[in-house]
Design a protein around this nucleic acid. Structure first.
Lengths: 167, 167
DNA sequence: TATTTTATGTCAGCCTTGTTGACATTCCAA
DNA sequence: TTGGAATGTCAACAAGGCTGACATAAAATA
């Protein structure tokens, strides 16, 4: 707890422009930290954040097709496709042609892909765990509430669908 | 408040892997929302997030030189330079040669630059304000605590320096 | 004072990853 | 069976990260 970002008062000023600006800056700097550890691991192997996101959600939704992944990630096809191609070439992801619908490619992590996923998410969870411990359980609940309120409605749906197991 | 992300229990499981994973996903989706409104405004003018960050911090630290801005943003010179060049060409930023040290360029927003800054930060603050209102004051405090705990130590210093007025 | 070292900022060139648009394949419905 | 819709691939481009070389100005030192 570093400051209130306010020049004088106390109680309701979490809605002052200055307070809001501090929240914006906190998001910016926190996101740098949030991605720092995975970025290091990825850089060693010549990958970027896009690879991380693909690996994360393929692990989360094994067997998802490309369109599903596109909807979750909110990027365009070619961005994802390029990343997928390298991951498949490198043997981290397997694309199985659909049996019912042969247009679909069902995506799975290989053993090597799962190993990288573990390495990445362990690093990111370690930082998250440390931050949660430092801030305490009450703070964590508030953190999650504000983040959810900040999402676009569509993103919130995708976020909820991940929890519910919806594909 | 959508879920606890947990399969069964209640009290201490904000530290389970699943809970941590949900926090990671919340950060991902929330950051999309966080940048969505400014991104739209910027796209209209052919700018990107890098321009936004430069404008934000030049507004925050008028007269800062390029090196100071580099330290705040945590990017390399060329990334910033390219963005600064376009902003200067477009008349949004003014670079004044230092009087004491002629190597330095002191950066200021022009009137047009300040107008764009207001437009961008108003949009972003509006969303932040809505999220804060929806989550409530207690949640906001927790949100800020977790974000600060998530920053790298160097980033936390830069963040604090912005509050303190340090350059 | 002259010269070397250090600091600031610019530029060229590379890579990742975002974009749009054209296309092949497959499925489905008229 | 044929014409549209859906799925995924690919080419080409733009933004914005990166490193490294460089010009200029200031500061330190001989």
């Amino acid at each position: 707890m570093a400051d209130t970002g306010s020049p004088g008062g106390e109680s309701l000023l979490f809605l002052t422009d200055e307070q809001l600006r501090r929240g914006i800056e906190a998001m910016f700097f926190a996101y740098q930290g949030f991605t720092a550890d995975p970025d290091r691991i990825l850089a060693e192997r010549g990958y970027g954040r896009a690879h991380h996101r693909a690996i994360h959600f393929i692990n989360r939704r094994p067997g998802a097709n490309v369109n599903t992944l596109l909807a979750i990630l909110g990027v365009t096809k070619q961005s994802l496709n390029r990343v997928l191609r390298t991951l498949i070439e490198d043997g981290l992801v397997e694309a199985r042609v659909g049996t019912r619908d042969k247009r679909e490619r069902h995506l799975h992590l290989t053993e090597a892909g799962a190993a990288l996923e573990t390495e990445l998410s362990t690093a990111q969870r370690d930082r998250m765990r440390a931050a949660y411990k430092a801030a305490g359980p009450g703070a964590v609940a508030g953190f999650r509430q504000v983040l959810e309120a900040m999402m676009d409605p569509e993103a919130l749906k995708r976020y909820a669908a991940l929890r519910d197991g919806g594909s």
